[in-house]
Protein backbone atom coordinates (compact mmCIF):
# COMPACT_ATOMS: atom_id res chain seq x y z
CA UNK A 1 0.00 0.00 0.00
CA UNK A 2 1.32 3.40 -0.91
CA UNK A 3 1.88 5.77 1.98
CA UNK A 4 1.35 9.46 1.42
CA UNK A 5 4.19 11.59 2.64
CA UNK A 6 3.46 15.17 3.44
CA UNK A 7 6.43 17.50 3.74
CA UNK A 8 4.85 18.99 6.86
CA UNK A 9 4.49 15.64 8.58
CA UNK A 10 7.54 13.92 9.94
CA UNK A 11 7.73 10.30 10.95
CA UNK A 12 7.09 9.86 14.65
CA UNK A 13 10.29 7.85 14.98
CA UNK A 14 12.42 10.55 13.37
CA UNK A 15 10.80 13.12 15.58
CA UNK A 16 11.65 11.13 18.70
CA UNK A 17 15.23 10.62 17.52
CA UNK A 18 15.57 14.33 16.81
CA UNK A 19 14.18 15.30 20.19
CA UNK A 20 16.50 12.85 21.86
CA UNK A 21 19.50 14.17 19.92
CA UNK A 22 18.66 17.76 20.84
CA UNK A 23 18.14 16.73 24.45
CA UNK A 24 21.47 14.91 24.59
CA UNK A 25 23.25 17.85 22.96
CA UNK A 26 21.71 20.21 25.51
CA UNK A 27 22.24 17.91 28.45
CA UNK A 28 25.72 19.14 29.50
CA UNK A 29 24.46 22.70 29.46
CA UNK A 30 21.29 21.89 31.39
CA UNK A 31 23.27 19.78 33.82
CA UNK A 32 25.84 22.52 34.43
CA UNK A 33 23.26 25.18 35.08
CA UNK A 34 21.18 22.78 37.16
CA UNK A 35 24.15 21.83 39.34
CA UNK A 36 25.14 25.47 39.74
CA UNK A 37 21.67 26.39 40.96
CA UNK A 38 21.53 23.33 43.21
CA UNK A 39 24.97 24.13 44.66
CA UNK A 40 23.81 27.61 45.54
CA UNK A 41 21.32 25.98 47.94
CA UNK A 42 23.82 23.53 49.41
CA UNK A 43 26.60 23.77 51.99
CA UNK A 44 28.81 21.93 49.54
CA UNK A 45 29.17 22.00 45.78
CA UNK A 46 27.26 19.20 44.09
CA UNK A 47 29.22 19.36 40.88
CA UNK A 48 30.66 15.87 41.36
CA UNK A 49 27.18 14.41 40.72
CA UNK A 50 27.19 12.86 44.17
CA UNK A 51 23.70 13.34 45.63
CA UNK A 52 25.07 13.06 49.17
CA UNK A 53 26.96 16.31 48.56
CA UNK A 54 23.67 18.17 48.51
CA UNK A 55 23.03 19.53 51.99
CA UNK A 56 20.22 22.06 51.69
CA UNK A 57 20.62 25.57 53.06
CA UNK A 58 19.69 29.11 52.13
CA UNK A 59 22.68 30.53 54.01
CA UNK A 60 24.63 31.10 50.80
CA UNK A 61 21.98 33.50 49.56
CA UNK A 62 21.81 35.26 52.92
CA UNK A 63 25.60 35.60 52.98
CA UNK A 64 25.56 36.85 49.40
CA UNK A 65 23.16 39.68 50.14
CA UNK A 66 25.06 40.48 53.31
CA UNK A 67 28.05 40.95 51.01
CA UNK A 68 30.08 38.20 52.65
CA UNK A 69 32.58 36.02 50.84
CA UNK A 70 32.81 33.32 53.46
CA UNK A 71 30.97 31.95 56.46
CA UNK A 72 33.56 33.40 58.83
CA UNK A 73 35.38 36.65 58.27
CA UNK A 74 35.75 38.41 54.98
CA UNK A 75 35.40 42.01 54.03
CA UNK A 76 31.78 42.85 53.28
CA UNK A 77 30.89 43.65 49.71
CA UNK A 78 27.99 45.65 48.34
CA UNK A 79 26.50 43.00 46.06
CA UNK A 80 23.28 44.97 45.53
CA UNK A 81 25.36 47.87 44.24
CA UNK A 82 27.24 45.49 41.91
CA UNK A 83 23.91 44.19 40.58
CA UNK A 84 22.75 47.74 39.94
CA UNK A 85 26.05 48.55 38.19
CA UNK A 86 25.62 45.48 35.98
CA UNK A 87 22.09 46.56 35.12
CA UNK A 88 23.24 50.10 34.31
CA UNK A 89 25.84 48.79 31.87
CA UNK A 90 23.46 46.26 30.31
CA UNK A 91 20.60 48.74 29.91
CA UNK A 92 22.97 51.40 28.64
CA UNK A 93 24.41 49.08 26.00
CA UNK A 94 20.91 48.00 24.97
CA UNK A 95 19.77 51.64 24.72
CA UNK A 96 22.71 52.80 22.61
CA UNK A 97 22.57 49.75 20.35
CA UNK A 98 18.83 50.12 19.70
CA UNK A 99 19.06 53.87 19.08
CA UNK A 100 21.92 53.65 16.61
CA UNK A 101 20.87 50.43 14.93
CA UNK A 102 17.28 51.35 14.16
CA UNK A 103 18.37 54.61 12.59
CA UNK A 104 21.30 53.17 10.69
CA UNK A 105 19.34 50.04 9.73
CA UNK A 106 16.54 52.15 8.30
CA UNK A 107 18.96 54.30 6.32
CA UNK A 108 20.74 51.25 4.97
CA UNK A 109 17.47 49.62 4.02
CA UNK A 110 15.58 52.53 2.57
CA UNK A 111 17.93 55.29 1.49
CA UNK A 112 20.05 55.23 -1.58
CA UNK A 113 23.28 57.15 -1.15
CA UNK A 114 26.79 56.90 -2.42
CA UNK A 115 28.91 54.29 -0.68
CA UNK A 116 25.95 52.56 0.95
CA UNK A 117 27.06 49.15 -0.19
CA UNK A 118 30.64 49.84 0.89
CA UNK A 119 29.50 50.98 4.33
CA UNK A 120 27.44 47.83 4.72
CA UNK A 121 30.48 45.73 3.88
CA UNK A 122 32.68 47.71 6.23
CA UNK A 123 30.15 47.33 9.02
CA UNK A 124 30.24 43.60 8.55
CA UNK A 125 34.01 43.75 8.60
CA UNK A 126 33.87 45.63 11.91
CA UNK A 127 31.87 42.80 13.41
CA UNK A 128 34.69 40.45 12.59
CA UNK A 129 37.02 42.29 15.00
CA UNK A 130 36.94 40.65 18.41
CA UNK A 131 36.65 43.11 21.30
CA UNK A 132 39.96 41.93 22.74
CA UNK A 133 41.83 42.86 19.58
CA UNK A 134 40.67 46.45 19.90
CA UNK A 135 41.18 46.84 23.60
CA UNK A 136 44.62 48.49 23.56
CA UNK A 137 43.50 51.25 21.21
CA UNK A 138 40.24 51.64 23.12
CA UNK A 139 42.22 51.89 26.37
CA UNK A 140 44.52 54.57 24.96
CA UNK A 141 41.55 56.64 23.86
CA UNK A 142 39.99 56.11 27.29
CA UNK A 143 43.16 57.24 29.01
CA UNK A 144 43.46 60.31 26.80
CA UNK A 145 39.87 61.40 27.31
CA UNK A 146 39.41 60.59 31.01
CA UNK A 147 38.38 63.64 33.08
CA UNK A 148 40.76 64.51 35.88
CA UNK A 149 37.99 64.94 38.43
CA UNK A 150 37.68 61.65 40.31
CA UNK A 151 33.88 61.59 40.56
CA UNK A 152 33.41 62.74 36.99
CA UNK A 153 35.85 60.05 35.90
CA UNK A 154 33.71 57.40 37.57
CA UNK A 155 30.62 58.53 35.70
CA UNK A 156 32.65 58.81 32.51
CA UNK A 157 33.85 55.23 32.96
CA UNK A 158 30.23 54.04 32.90
CA UNK A 159 29.48 56.07 29.78
CA UNK A 160 32.67 54.88 28.12
CA UNK A 161 32.17 51.22 28.80
CA UNK A 162 28.58 51.46 27.56
CA UNK A 163 29.57 53.14 24.31
CA UNK A 164 32.62 50.91 23.76
CA UNK A 165 30.66 47.74 24.40
CA UNK A 166 27.72 48.96 22.31
CA UNK A 167 30.10 49.65 19.43
CA UNK A 168 30.90 45.96 19.29
CA UNK A 169 27.23 45.04 19.08
CA UNK A 170 26.07 47.70 16.66
CA UNK A 171 27.39 46.22 13.38
CA UNK A 172 25.50 42.96 13.74
CA UNK A 173 22.42 44.75 15.04
CA UNK A 174 22.37 47.04 12.01
CA UNK A 175 22.40 44.05 9.70
CA UNK A 176 19.74 42.32 11.73
CA UNK A 177 17.36 45.26 11.86
CA UNK A 178 18.00 46.10 8.22
CA UNK A 179 16.58 42.67 7.39
CA UNK A 180 13.40 43.60 9.23
CA UNK A 181 13.11 46.96 7.47
CA UNK A 182 13.71 45.23 4.11
CA UNK A 183 10.69 43.03 4.69
CA UNK A 184 8.30 45.95 5.21
CA UNK A 185 6.57 46.56 1.85
CA UNK A 186 7.53 49.85 0.16
CA UNK A 187 3.84 50.54 -0.43
CA UNK A 188 3.24 51.05 3.26
CA UNK A 189 5.89 53.77 3.43
CA UNK A 190 4.78 55.40 0.15
CA UNK A 191 1.24 55.53 1.37
CA UNK A 192 2.32 57.45 4.45
CA UNK A 193 4.51 59.81 2.43
CA UNK A 194 1.64 60.45 -0.02
CA UNK A 195 -0.53 61.25 2.98
CA UNK A 196 1.96 64.01 3.82
CA UNK A 197 4.13 62.45 6.49
CA UNK A 198 7.79 63.45 6.69
CA UNK A 199 10.51 60.83 6.33
CA UNK A 200 11.26 61.08 10.05
CA UNK A 201 7.60 60.68 10.92
CA UNK A 202 7.29 57.69 8.62
CA UNK A 203 10.29 56.11 10.31
CA UNK A 204 8.96 56.79 13.77
CA UNK A 205 5.26 56.17 13.38
CA UNK A 206 5.01 53.70 10.55
CA UNK A 207 8.22 51.75 10.28
CA UNK A 208 9.25 51.31 13.89
CA UNK A 209 5.97 49.69 15.01
CA UNK A 210 6.33 47.23 12.14
CA UNK A 211 9.82 46.11 13.14
CA UNK A 212 9.07 45.79 16.87
CA UNK A 213 10.14 42.13 17.05
CA UNK A 214 13.45 43.09 15.48
CA UNK A 215 13.95 45.96 17.92
CA UNK A 216 13.13 43.65 20.81
CA UNK A 217 15.59 41.10 19.53
CA UNK A 218 18.52 43.49 19.16
CA UNK A 219 17.67 45.02 22.54
CA UNK A 220 17.77 41.60 24.17
CA UNK A 221 21.02 40.59 22.52
CA UNK A 222 22.60 43.92 23.43
CA UNK A 223 21.34 43.73 27.01
CA UNK A 224 22.78 40.27 27.43
CA UNK A 225 26.08 41.35 25.85
CA UNK A 226 26.32 44.19 28.37
CA UNK A 227 25.20 42.02 31.26
CA UNK A 228 27.69 39.29 30.49
CA UNK A 229 30.65 41.45 29.57
CA UNK A 230 33.78 40.92 31.59
CA UNK A 231 36.78 42.19 29.65
CA UNK A 232 35.57 45.72 28.88
CA UNK A 233 33.97 46.13 32.25
CA UNK A 234 37.10 44.99 34.00
CA UNK A 235 39.30 47.28 31.94
CA UNK A 236 37.28 50.47 31.87
CA UNK A 237 34.76 50.48 34.66
CA UNK A 238 35.99 51.82 37.99
CA UNK A 239 33.09 50.22 39.82
CA UNK A 240 32.42 46.54 40.07
CA UNK A 241 29.79 44.45 38.34
CA UNK A 242 28.63 40.95 39.16
CA UNK A 243 30.97 39.53 36.53
CA UNK A 244 34.08 41.15 37.98
CA UNK A 245 32.94 40.34 41.53
CA UNK A 246 32.63 36.64 40.74
CA UNK A 247 35.79 36.55 38.67
CA UNK A 248 37.92 38.23 41.30
CA UNK A 249 36.89 35.84 44.03
CA UNK A 250 36.63 32.49 42.32
CA UNK A 251 40.22 31.71 41.45
CA UNK A 252 41.60 31.27 44.94
CA UNK A 253 42.14 28.20 47.05
CA UNK A 254 40.03 29.51 49.91
CA UNK A 255 37.03 30.50 47.78
CA UNK A 256 33.74 29.44 49.35
CA UNK A 257 32.29 27.97 46.20
CA UNK A 258 28.62 27.47 47.23
CA UNK A 259 28.41 31.19 47.92
CA UNK A 260 29.92 31.94 44.54
CA UNK A 261 27.43 29.49 43.04
CA UNK A 262 24.71 31.70 44.54
CA UNK A 263 26.39 34.75 42.99
CA UNK A 264 26.61 32.89 39.68
CA UNK A 265 22.93 31.99 39.84
CA UNK A 266 22.02 35.59 40.59
CA UNK A 267 24.14 36.60 37.64
CA UNK A 268 22.36 34.08 35.41
CA UNK A 269 18.82 35.03 36.40
CA UNK A 270 18.25 37.84 33.87
CA UNK A 271 19.65 35.68 31.09
CA UNK A 272 17.35 32.80 31.96
CA UNK A 273 14.34 35.09 32.43
CA UNK A 274 14.99 36.88 29.16
CA UNK A 275 15.22 33.67 27.22
CA UNK A 276 12.09 32.24 28.78
CA UNK A 277 10.07 35.40 28.20
CA UNK A 278 11.31 36.10 24.71
CA UNK A 279 11.73 32.65 23.30
CA UNK A 280 9.02 33.15 20.67
CA UNK A 281 10.36 36.50 19.65
CA UNK A 282 13.87 35.16 19.20
CA UNK A 283 12.56 32.29 17.10
CA UNK A 284 10.80 34.78 14.86
CA UNK A 285 14.06 36.66 14.53
CA UNK A 286 16.06 33.59 13.71
CA UNK A 287 13.65 32.64 10.97
CA UNK A 288 13.90 36.21 9.73
CA UNK A 289 10.22 36.95 9.41
CA UNK A 290 7.74 39.37 10.83
CA UNK A 291 4.01 39.07 11.13
CA UNK A 292 2.21 40.80 8.29
Amino acid sequence: MMQLWDVEVKSRKIEIVLILAVFLASLPLILNYGLLILSSFSTEMVTNLDPTSFRPTIDNWILLFEGRLSVTGGVREDVVRYTINTAIVALGVAGVVVLVSVMAGYAMSRMNFKGRSLIMQMILLLHAFPGVALIIAVYLIFRATLPSDIELARIYSFAYVIVARAALEIPMSIWLIKGFFDRVPWEVEWAAIIDGASRLRVWREVMLPMVKPGIAAIAIFAFLAGWEDLIYVRTFLFDRTLATYIESNINVEFAYMPLLAAAGTLYLLPTILFFILTQRLLLETSTGGIKG
Binding site: E77, I150, F238, S248, A255
Partner: peptide, 21 residues
Protein backbone atom coordinates in the same frame (compact mmCIF):
# COMPACT_ATOMS: atom_id res chain seq x y z
CA UNK B 1 38.34 47.63 47.97
CA UNK B 2 38.87 43.93 48.45
CA UNK B 3 39.64 41.12 46.03
CA UNK B 4 40.41 37.59 47.14
CA UNK B 5 42.93 36.93 44.40
CA UNK B 6 46.10 38.94 45.02
CA UNK B 7 47.32 38.44 41.45
CA UNK B 8 44.18 39.96 40.10
CA UNK B 9 44.38 42.87 42.50
CA UNK B 10 47.82 43.57 41.10
CA UNK B 11 46.49 43.44 37.52
CA UNK B 12 43.77 45.84 38.45
CA UNK B 13 46.21 48.17 40.16
CA UNK B 14 48.35 48.15 37.01
CA UNK B 15 45.45 49.20 34.81
CA UNK B 16 43.81 51.67 37.21
CA UNK B 17 46.84 53.42 38.71
CA UNK B 18 47.73 55.41 35.57
CA UNK B 19 44.10 56.54 35.47
CA UNK B 20 44.23 57.81 39.04
CA UNK B 21 41.68 55.25 40.18
Amino acid sequence: YWISDFNQLYQEYLSKQPLGQ
